[in-house]
């Protein structure tokens, strides 16, 4: 089972939920931090990193000896990543999506695909947890290729993979939660939390993935999130009250289950609840 933890709004507690769940379960599992722009899960897991793998994207290189300046490459590129100025071809690597179009279209075979590093993948573990995260290089714009690389490490036979997704509702989030069996949405009961939650739910509907809700800092704000969950028939699988002790342990990178051990059982039950929903759906043949 692959579970992704997402939110729409940032700072609602995605990483808190994914790391505490991973630490609570007494089974071997994989935790993947797909928030490659700001990866934080390692701060709570303290994994031993055995391997750092560079992640590259293809980028065109032009052989000017062969180039006839026909501009077919400029014409096919949808991202303005290649242009001809006077007698040279200029490449803007940051804009290149790596679609390979320019290389294929070139009638002179003057383009070959080189590589450009956009970030790294850190692979390691801690006790029963296999840990992987992506870390986008500073100044790089495109997170999705790195997220795709990190997700290639998923082993489908494994009982559980937990994906810590980035905030928002656009391409990085979609790339992270795509092809997962369940999305656990973490929100807070405030106007901002609710608004961004509704956007996230719409995205999940498009992907047709079942979802459930964790309401964090459940006693601040108002009750509209609860009304919304009822209307949309989204099960509330966990509520975490605002507790200074939880906030304090989070601040220093201490898991909730270390500060308040009674929460361990609740995270195990959260996992069981998701498993039941996923299995139920499988049984119905979806």
């Amino acid at each position: 089972m692959i579970v992704s933890i997402a939110s729409g709004k940032g700072g609602t507690g995605k990483t808190t939920i994914s790391t505490n769940m991973a630490l609570s379960l007494k089974m071997s599992l994989t935790l993947i931090d797909c928030d490659v722009e700001e990866p934080n899960a390692h701060l709570f897991i303290h994994p031993e990193i055995d391997e750092i793998r560079k992640v590259s994207v293809p980028v065109p290189e032009v052989d000017m000896e062969r180039c006839s300046l026909c501009k077919k490459c400029v014409e096919i590129c949808q991202f303005n990543a290649i242009t001809v100025v006077k007698k040279t071809v200029l490449i803007f690597p940051n804009l290149c999506h790596g679609c390979d179009g320019c290389r294929i279209v070139c009638p002179e075979n003057a383009i070959r695909m080189g590589e450009r590093e956009i970030g790294v993948m850190e692979i390691g573990g801690k006790d029963q947890i296999r840990f992987i995260n992506g870390r986008l290089n500073i100044g790089e714009a495109m997170a999705p290729p790195l997220i795709r690389s990190v997700k290639r490490c998923i082993n489908n036979d494994e009982a559980l993979t937990i994906i810590d997704a980035p905030p928002g509702t656009s391409c990085p989030v979609i790339t992270a939660i795509k092809e997962t069996d369940f999305v656990l949405l973490v929100t807070e009961p405030t106007p901002f939390g609710l608004h961004d939650l509704t956007l996230a739910v719409e995205a999940i509907k498009i992907l047709d993935i079942p979802c459930g809700l964790v309401i964090n800092r459940a006693d601040i704000g108002d009750t509209h999130v609860y009304d919304y969950a009822r209307e949309e028939k989204i099960p509330i699988l966990m509520e975490i009250p605002f507790d200074r002790k939880i906030a304090e342990s989070y601040a220093i990178g201490e898991p909730i289950i270390d500060a308040l051990p009674e929460w361990k059982e609740k995270f195990i039950r959260l996992y069981e609840a998701m498993k039941t929903i996923v299995n139920e759906r499988k049984r119905k043949g979806k």
């Binding site: 986008l136 928002g168 656009s170």
Partner: peptide, 10 residues
């Protein structure tokens, strides 16, 4: 601005 360090932030 948006959160993160990627495309929309840049």
């Amino acid at each position: 601005g948006p959160p993160g360090v990627g495309c929309p932030v840049i």
